[in-house]
Design a protein around this nucleic acid. Sequence first.
DNA 1: GATTGTGAATAAGTTCACAGCC
DNA 2: GGCTGTGAACTTATTCACAATC
Lengths: 217, 217
Amino acid sequence: MNKEKRRSVLSAKAIGRLCIYRRILEEWEGSGKTRAFSHELAGAAGQTAVLVRRDLMGIGYAGSPNRGYDVGALQHAIGDLLDRHETQNVALVGVGNLGKALLDYFQGLRPNLRIPAAFDSDPEKVGGEVGDARTHHVDDLARVIEEFSIGVAVLTVPSEAAQETADRLIAAGVRSLLNFTRVRLRTPPGIYVENVDISMSLEKVAYFARRRDAGAA
Amino acid sequence: MNKEKRRSVLSAKAIGRLCIYRRILEEWEGSGKTRAFSHELAGAAGQTAVLVRRDLMGIGYAGSPNRGYDVGALQHAIGDLLDRHETQNVALVGVGNLGKALLDYFQGLRPNLRIPAAFDSDPEKVGGEVGDARTHHVDDLARVIEEFSIGVAVLTVPSEAAQETADRLIAAGVRSLLNFTRVRLRTPPGIYVENVDISMSLEKVAYFARRRDAGAA
DNA sequence: GATTGTGAATAAGTTCACAGCC
DNA sequence: GGCTGTGAACTTATTCACAATC
């Protein structure tokens, strides 16, 4: 129907799980494991075997009964879906403690995801480098975003600046945001926002530490 | 039925949203706003008005038609549910870049959540302090966890150490974990784990930057 | 005999639609 | 008239159950 082959549209949750499967498969591939069963993947990913099979069905990859899946081929199939294109450039905005830690963390995690630029409003931080990323002043945001064809941004600015920064990023052409601020952003349709609300997560965990029944995340 | 009043058991998702509502209400309270409608809360929280009302129904708090909710009272009601008890102590394990940034980030975010202790396996880091937190060697984990009655832990160790560290934390009495590693932990029933899989989130965001249809998180 | 792929059933989460209230 | 509270409808996500396969 559209150019994404005709595989059924995958939900955000399914995509998340596929990222996890891929990571596990890469690890197995590195350690020489060549075949895997759905229940093995499920165990490592913290999911059920049926759900793994459904997810793989979703990407159109078929295993063989009794022999399971081919680790290398499956890893490749997922990778194909997840980053079919060449390198994607990512920007990080807000080079505070958390921003710096994330810049460092992301370096080299995924060969296809580069972070060539960071932004901050503090002139003292401009010019600093972490790995590939050179820090620019936010006033140069639009120019640099365009220069590097950046379509993804990580938002680690203070809450007060979150919405305005997001607006500017989107105006500059960014298509999706990884939002580490506590603000729920208002964005036009077509823009994907993934919220990583760390303080909420901590509060949740604290709450469940007091409830005797478990629950997964 | 059990001592949690008889309010229906709230899902992890609902708890997460309640954390968000509370934050917004606190902000409004600070700025002098005293009443709020479900659609206002919904707007600020990035949810629908109906869902907000359902969630509040879930905690047994009633607003009044045409006048909405009382900001102060509602904030208090949610707070009551979310941290009814006295201060809860939290430990952070793995004082790397990310661990340090999180220690700093969490300091003072919630008066009822203190982080009195951090752990690392590197002797060089032992003795260091960030805010309330003093860094101990992981070998002292059980002792310190008990000393501070710590029930919640934030896991920011390298992947290789994740499962073993989690096991030790749980053995020491920790009831719930905020897991920042890429490993899906195996935990006994009754232990709550919230996974914050940062690299997965970035991969997801990168994926959706290339799909023209949106999707919320 | 163990495993995959999948229709059907179930469960979880959300929205619709509207009665009741101020 | 505009809001809350909520049964019912709906949608999404997951699991069950089993036929097909190796």
